[in-house]
Design a protein around this nucleic acid. Structure first.
Lengths: 207, 207
DNA sequence: CCATGTGAACAAATTCACAGCA
DNA sequence: TGCTGTGAATTTGTTCACATGG
């Protein structure tokens, strides 16, 4: 089976919403009800969910608890995935702390910087280590995911270093188009691009 | 003309790349050369560019300077757009400073929080103001864009407050699906969803 | 009866293939 | 000749419509 990014992202949204519903004590929900919350169509939601099996009950809807369990494991979220953050500037520090509440799925095991001044300082309950130790750290903790929050100039070499050190997927926050390793999952998050998109929509609305 | 988000996001990437090329002194570039940098197909890039006019020279390619000018104005980036950031936690602070180098396109004119403790503190060269002053601030500076970096629980009410105060587009960093105002451009950036997507790809690679 | 699951219809995005022009 | 610009073909994603089953 081959699930698209679009579907995966929506599934993450559904899952988060379902957890809220669970806390509120809701036991069942229909695709129609979910659709209203997300401004999506009900058949789309059913198609998304159906990619992982038949979770629903005809005539009734989906059982919240059951659906959460199935989605959670289908998405690989029931295992813990060690990650590290490279680049302890403002954004990297903020992200490391934000992600650092270490839930069952993600665990920030190390934070790194290549600036000797920063090495040794504390970020949350972690101590900043030098990027020279990258390979060792990846082996030590079985790091799967790397988060890149270095300046634009440093992003490509650090991406390469991460991959060479054995990191299996990369989330990049540097505003550059990386030359990616084929077959290695990675995503870029780029605030400026989102802002520029919004600006265009404003322009377009003026006619 | 109606340009898709996908196209717009790629245009922003091209533009950034073109500026780098310009600095390096490159005068011309072909769609093929651009395609290699982004792992895209050359016809796709030509289609993207062609939505705004015929910028290229057949047999030669695109003139870097000219293409930058045209894209820049087509995307509405030659006017300055005042924005404000609501939520001066770690992420909001980091973003405000990150965006706060105030280039020709974006200018952070105010940073806000609803916590009286934080009001009055400095973030970069701005002083944190209280969210009660939202409407006044929007009017004062002609704020067009709002960036939301408040905790999940506060996101919906603060989104509504932003829109009611006259903000014309919103970039949301809170991990929730907002109930959006019809016709008002907005985007959500959600780190957790990107991480979850990467995890799924890792799982899928194992077969 | 009612909401799911799904094949068929439709729409959007991308690639292909090539005409047209420097 | 070489690269752009673009209609046609293809692939991908979404919606429609309905058969199915609790």
């Amino acid at each position: 089976m081959d699930v698209s990014s679009l579907t995966l992202n929506r599934l993450s949204l559904y899952l988060r919403c379902l957890r809220t519903l669970q806390e509120e004590g809701t036991e069942r929900i229909s695709s129609q009800q979910l659709a209203e919350r997300f401004d999506l169509s009900a058949p789309l939601i059913r198609k998304d969910l159906a990619q992982f099996g038949e979770f629903g009950i005809r005539g009734i809807g989906y059982e919240v608890d059951h659906l959460i369990d199935r989605l959670h494991s289908a998405l690989g979220l029931d295992q813990q995935h060690p990650l590290l953050v490279v680049g302890m500037g403002r954004l990297g520090t903020a992200l490391a702390r934000y992600l650092g509440f270490n839930d069952a799925t993600f665990r920030v095991v190390a934070v790194l910087d290549n600036d000797a001044e920063k090495v040794g300082k504390e970020v949350g309950d972690l101590t900043i280590r030098h990027t020279d130790e990258l390979e060792e750290i990846v082996r030590e903790y079985g790091v799967e995911l790397g988060v890149l929050t270095v300046p634009a100039e440093a992003a490509q070499p650090m991406y390469d270093a991460l991959v060479d050190a054995g990191v299996q997927a990369v989330l990049n926050f540097a505003p550059v188009s990386l030359q990616l390793r084929p077959g290695l999952p990675s995503k870029s998050v780029d605030f400026r691009i989102h802002l520029e998109e919004l600006v265009y929509f404003l322009l377009a609305k003026e006619d």
